[in-house]
Design a protein around this nucleic acid. Structure first.
Length: 414
DNA sequence: TCTGGGGTCCTAGGACCC
DNA sequence: TCTGGGGTCCTAGGACCC
């Protein structure tokens, strides 16, 4: 039996992806501070002389956030998820472009296809990053994946005109940390022997899985770097962060991660949500809310049908003006994918929430996804068909699905 | 003048079943 | 007759990621 090759896992991260795609379209913006975000903004205007007029951040009014921005904009202190109003104060002359997901998805497919031609084992981690298993790529074992990584970078540039950063490491955790070490246009090789010198000095927050809350809690104990966490007594970590998360923290800080590359996965949920331009009240803005709610349900139904799923469980998500969040969901006797059925189920969830506060966001979510073909054949449910919905127990029927909160007659009032 | 939209995974309690 | 133990499903919320 052949000896299993040493694992060589790469993480590839496109550099300022959305902004870089926009620069391909608008090359005259190269070198400038450009911010992508907002969503309801207009595309640049084409003047009669063929030049373009771009919106600047200066006059932005609204609730949009920065989706991403160029490295020149980052120099002003702008970063992803920052409110556009705040970004405008930092760099009023920065150019503001609307997001164009269709365009980014196109480039996403291009770069992933280019990678697959060299290394077919890839794990999707969203629109602009992937993990790649290089373990069995010819020659990769000879130089720790250096030449393969070089070839991947070249192939991505050839296919898209875009730069990316790649790290090769013994596992996903280290590869992810590594791809950030030399950005942009980076190529990093990270071995186990490098952990103490190159990983331990980094902020704990650099570990994928240590977010703002965990980092703050760690800092409260005086643990700031990954090395600090690695040096902490494992029993103490377990006692303070729970059995599961504590054990993971200890392993992660030591660079240990056995997770496999997942080359295929099915969606678990599909959702649509929207933040209002101004906060809305369930009573005073009843018609506007009803129309928006119906629209969300229709879009969700469209997504489900396009992707070929029906949902056994429907839910809503609300965010109030004080930013508090609640969710409600209901499991149905049979999966649905029709807009009216979704609207009815989601409406029943809405009725279970105290709506005296103004709302800032409303969302609709489908979970318990089953292939639509199976859902259709399960109606009516046939005895012994495991695909058919189990009939819910009495307590699960506590919330009857009948009238939607916003009556259907309200739809279209706005 | 705060804070988008689309996801995943985990926890925890109650109901229910064997 | 005084209280088991394991397992699953459902629901709500939270942390985290891109």
């Amino acid at each position: 039996m052949p000896i299993a090759p040493r694992r060589l896992i790469a993480h590839l991260d496109m550099d300022a992806f959305y902004a870089s795609v926009e620069l391909l379209r608008y090359p005259e913006l190269r070198g400038q501070a450009v911010v992508i975000g907002g969503g309801r903004e207009r595309q640049p205007m084409l003047r009669h002389d063929g030049t373009r007029r771009y919106a600047s951040l200066r006059h932005y009014v609204g609730r949009g956030v920065v989706t991403t921005c160029t490295y020149e904009a980052r120099a002003f202190g702008i970063h992803s998820a920052m409110g556009l109003m705040k970004a405008a104060r930092l760099a009023p002359d920065a150019v503001l472009l609307p997001v164009d997901f269709d365009e980014y998805r196109l480039y996403s497919r291009r770069f992933k296809d280019a990678v697959k031609r060299i290394a077919p084992q890839i794990e999707d981690r969203g629109i602009d990053e992937i993990y790649i298993d290089l373990s069995e790529v010819p020659g990769a074992q000879n130089d720790a994946g250096a030449a393969a990584a070089r070839a991947l970078k070249d192939a991505v540039f050839e296919a898209t005109g875009l730069r990316c950063s790649i790290a090769v490491a013994p596992n996903k955790l280290l590869a992810k940390i590594g791809s950030e070490l030399d950005k942009p246009d980076g190529l990093t090789l990270l071995a186990e022997a490098d952990i103490t010198t190159r990983v331990w000095p980094l902020a704990a927050r650099k570990v994928n899985g240590i977010g703002p809350k965990a980092a703050e809690k760690l800092a409260g104990f005086g643990l700031h770097t990954i090395g600090d966490v690695a040096a902490a007594d494992p029993h103490w970590l377990l006692a303070n962060f729970g059995r599961s998360y504590g054990a993971w923290l200890h392993a992660a800080a030591h660079g240990r991660d056995e997770r496999a590359i997942v080359t295929h996965s099915e969606p678990k949920s599909i959702s649509r949500e929207t933040t209002f331009e101004r906060d809305l009240h369930a009573v005073h803005d009843r018609h506007a809310l009803s129309a928006l709610f119906t629209q969300l349900c229709e879009r969700l139904a469209g997504d489900l049908q396009r992707k070929g799923y029906a949902a056994q469980t429907l839910g809503i998500k609300l965010r109030f003006d004080d930013f508090k969040r609640v969710s409600r969901d209901v499991t149905l006797a049979a999966p649905v994918d029709a807009p009216q059925a979704i609207r009815t189920a989601a409406g029943s969830c809405l009725k279970r929430v105290d709506l005296s506060r103004r709302l800032r966001l409303i969302g609709v979510r489908a979970t318990g996804l089953v292939p639509a073909a199976r859902a259709a054949s399960a109606e009516p449910p046939t005895p012994g068909d495991r695909g058919a919905a189990k009939s819910p127990s009495p307590t699960r029927h506590k919330w009857q699905v009948d009238l939607p909160f916003f009556s259907a007659s309200d739809d279209g009032a706005v």
